[in-house]
Design a protein around this nucleic acid. Structure first.
Lengths: 150, 150
DNA sequence: GCAGGATGGTTGTAGCTACAACCATTACGA
DNA sequence: TCGTAATGGTTGTAGCTACAACCATCCTGC
């Protein structure tokens, strides 16, 4: 019971903390940040919408709306995929690359402050195992989140 | 890194799983369920708005909107606090009590399925300690969540 | 070579949350 | 005892997400 009550509280509170730091410092949602981060790590900073949705644990409609807004802000751009006329590619613009480079340190610091630094090394290992088990039951087929699969 | 990526994925995915089970089976949000659960455990099934907001890890405006909607549905009722004219009390109605009694088993089962049952007893203990540490840094003054304080 | 389904993606909209502004009541200090 | 601040709560609104509906392209079997 204690474990569940606390986990529920973390589920409720932590996203708000992350969001408000990013909104304050970079006018970004935590989810938007994640989108940029995944793009920035991809070859040519480009990813198909479906792949990006998987990596960011989101549905396609959600991603589509978010990318549209980021596109309006000049942070990403979309173009049709040459190999598959159905598909759309999303690519980080130069401005987007600058943005995430500038934003990352502050965000990483926030994550360290509230999660990593308050745990012992053993606890971090434990957390990886625990969240891994939960993810496997929440998303058994691995439809989402190819990333967290070891 | 692995621990954080997975935790972020849990933060993104688990609420959706809980929400959709409750919406499907009871037309309730996970947060609304939590509100009803806290009321049902309180003396006289009544709590002041501020206390209820604390126990549910939410801001007062959010709670106010939610309670208004629950009131419209006949699940809770509000009445001014006799001792402090500023304060408002929220109380579970008979219908609300029936509702949560009917809903709890299914919700508990979902939580077991996705969290409790996929972990070993040691991992559950570890999870309580880990989330406890995170909560303490996210909410150092204990402004919220009196509940999870041991 | 084409019918039917699967895949990839967008759009419309209802509903919830965050934030700021606001009002009423109570507590406190000089 | 009165002015000021703190407390308790509500409301308005902008913005994001979920869900459903929709369209276009690709694949498969026959």
């Amino acid at each position: 019971m204690t474990a569940w009550v606390r986990l529920a509280a973390v589920l409720e509170l932590l996203p708000g903390v992350l969001d408000s730091q990013l909104r304050r410092d970079a006018e970004l949602t935590h989810y938007e940040y994640y989108v940029l981060a995944m793009l920035s790590e991809a070859p040519k900073r480009t990813l198909r919408m479906t792949a990006l949705a998987q990596r960011t644990n989101a549905t396609l409609p959600r991603l589509s709306h978010v990318v549209k807004r980021l596109e309006d802000r000049g942070i990403v751009e979309r173009f049709p995929c040459p190999e598959d006329a159905r598909a759309t590619n999303a690519r980080l613009t130069a401005a987007g690359w600058k943005k995430i480079r500038a934003t990352a340190p502050g965000h990483v610091e926030t994550v360290r402050q509230h999660v990593i630094d308050v745990l012992t090394p053993e606890q971090i290992t434990q957390l990886a195992a625990i969240t891994g088990a939960i993810l496997e039951s929440v998303d058994p087929d691995g439809n989402l989140s190819a990333v967290y699969r070891r």
